[in-house]
Every structure is written in C-alpha cells, then in structure tokens.
C-alpha cells in the first residue's frame, strides 16, 4: 500500500504551492485514478511519490516506510511510465527494454513478450528515433512493466493511442492489478479512469476536490433522473423526471405511450464539471 499524507509542494519556495494538503492511499491490487486538468499538479504528485522531487512537507509511505529513507534497492519494486518521452533514441526498442531489464536485481519479464503485448513486435529492432509518438509511448509503458513492479505509476498511458491499442493497454493494466500491484494512474481521460479505477480523485488547482469510487461519485453527484421518450400523436417527445418524484414517474408510465426509458447516469466528466465548475479537457 502507498500512503500519501498531507503533501504540499512549492516549486519556487515563494509560498505558492503547486499542490496542497494531498492525502490518499493506493491499496495493493487496486487502481487509483488521479484526474485533473493540465497544470493541476498530477505529475508533481507522481514525482514526489517516486522520489524524483524531494518531499518538502508531508509524507509518502510504502508499506509504512517513508520514501525519504528508501534505499536504491527499493526501486526493484517500482515501475514508472512517464508522460514525456524518455527512451534512448539511438537504440532499438528491444535494446531499450533489455538495457532497462539489466538494471534490476529481481526476475524480469521477457522483453519480446512485452513488445508483443503492446503491438511493437514488428518494430522491435527499429531505432527508437524512427518510432512515432504513439509507439514511443507504448514502449515507455512496456518498460515500466519489465520488473513486475509492486508499485506501478502510469502518467497518461493511453493518450494519443488508437482505440484498438488502447484496449490492449487497458487489459495489461488490469492484469497488473490482478497480480497484486498498486497502480497509480494519472490521466485526463475520464473514460479510462472510469473503466479501470477502483477509486478516483479529482485534482483541481493543486487540491483534491473529490475522491471516492466512481460508482459512489455518480450516486452523489449524478443527476438521479430518468429520461422518458413517449409518443404524442405523430411526434416523439422527451421528458426528464427526477427519480424521487414517484408520483410523476408512475403517472407517466401508466398514462403515456412510452417508447424508451433511459436512466440518466452522470459521466465522470459531468461530475468533474459540477465539482470544480471547470471543464476537464479545457
């Protein structure tokens, strides 16, 4: 389990915090979706958690041990997929994975198998300088899995990928969870977060605006109404009825010529808008 307790970070030391009072935990065998618009502070938190940024205030604990006191060997249990490109461009995809695998002192996954899984088998022996943006991203993702990490950090793993590859990558992420890894998933994509996360947190302006399971968020912030499509003469009409207005609902069902009924579940996107007053993908 990873625990993040009351973490603050001020880049310039001028009292203006990029993230403030961030507290959450990521259980082993679960996926934690970290959502927020650009500049919200998602990468800042990931970098503090992985030790790339020194902790200024607060605490990050891995199974109770502070990130401040972890030794080099601890990184055998960590996998990180960064949002920016960070591959050796003069080496091939396979060489990149093989080299990274050699850095670990724990059993590693066969690099060719991983390349197969992310659809890069054919391009394994091509230099990364000749890879497209999406290919590099898949390679970075594959690299983060090479040591079967107990703690997996994924910063925007599927942005800019075609739907078919994105599905393959989702499957791989779910496999990591099934294997018992604690997965910290940073993304703009509400859809991805909704599909994969056990818990989601909305980060906005450096603070957590809401945090719960996707279902609970939908229950609390969702519209809780039914959309009824009914026929009136030749025309089809539509009406939204709140779920707790039982009288109106039963009247509608008994009297009108109902064609369709939709339960109006809110998307995470809409919930985010309600919680923060801002569009996520702005």
């Amino acid at each position: 389990m990873i625990q993040v307790n009351q973490v603050f970070h001020d880049y310039e030391g001028k009292g203006k915090c990029a993230v403030s009072d961030i507290t959450f935990s990521v259980e082993s065998g679960s996926i934690f979706g970290f959502l927020g618009p650009s500049g919200a502070g998602k990468s800042t938190i990931q970098n503090i958690m992985t030790g790339l940024l020194p902790i200024q205030k607060g605490e990050v604990l891995y199974d109770g041990k502070s990130v401040r006191h972890l030794n080099t060997g601890f990184f055998n249990q960590i996998g990180v997929s960064f949002e920016q490109n960070n591959l050796y461009s003069s080496l091939t995809g396979l060489e990149n994975l093989k080299y990274h695998a050699a850095l670990f002192s724990v059993p590693t996954v066969n690099p060719m198998e991983l390349l197969e899984r992310v659809g890069l088998r054919e391009d394994a022996n091509k230099r990364v300088s000749n890879y497209s943006k999406g290919m590099r991203q898949r390679l970075t993702f594959a690299r983060s899995l090479i040591n079967k990490p107990q703690y997996l950090f994924l910063d925007e793993p599927t942005s800019g990928l075609d739907p078919k590859t994105a599905v393959g990558i989702r499957e791989l992420i779910l496999e990591q969870k099934a294997r018992g890894a604690a997965v910290f998933l940073t993304t703009h994509s509400m859809e991805l977060a909704d599909a994969l996360s056990d818990t989601v947190a909305f980060l906005y302006g450096g603070v957590i605006a809401a945090m719960d399971t996707p279902e609970a968020l939908k229950r609390v912030y969702g519209k809780r109404e039914v959309r009824v499509v009914y026929r009136e003469g030749e025309e089809e009409r539509e009406r939204a009825i709140p779920l707790d207005d039982k009288a109106a609902l039963s009247a509608m069902l008994t009297t009108a010529d109902v064609v369709k009924l939709h339960s109006q579940e809110a998307t995470l996107e809409e919930i985010f808008l309600r919680v923060t007053g801002k569009e996520l993908t702005a």
Partner: peptide, 14 residues
Amino acid sequence: QDGTVRALRVSPFP
C-alpha cells in the same frame, strides 16, 4: 535531453 536520466533515477541503479 532524451529524459532517460529520469528513468535511471527510478531504477535500482546505484
């Protein structure tokens, strides 16, 4: 420039 130094920093490479 490649950013690979960041990958090294989160690996168990002393």
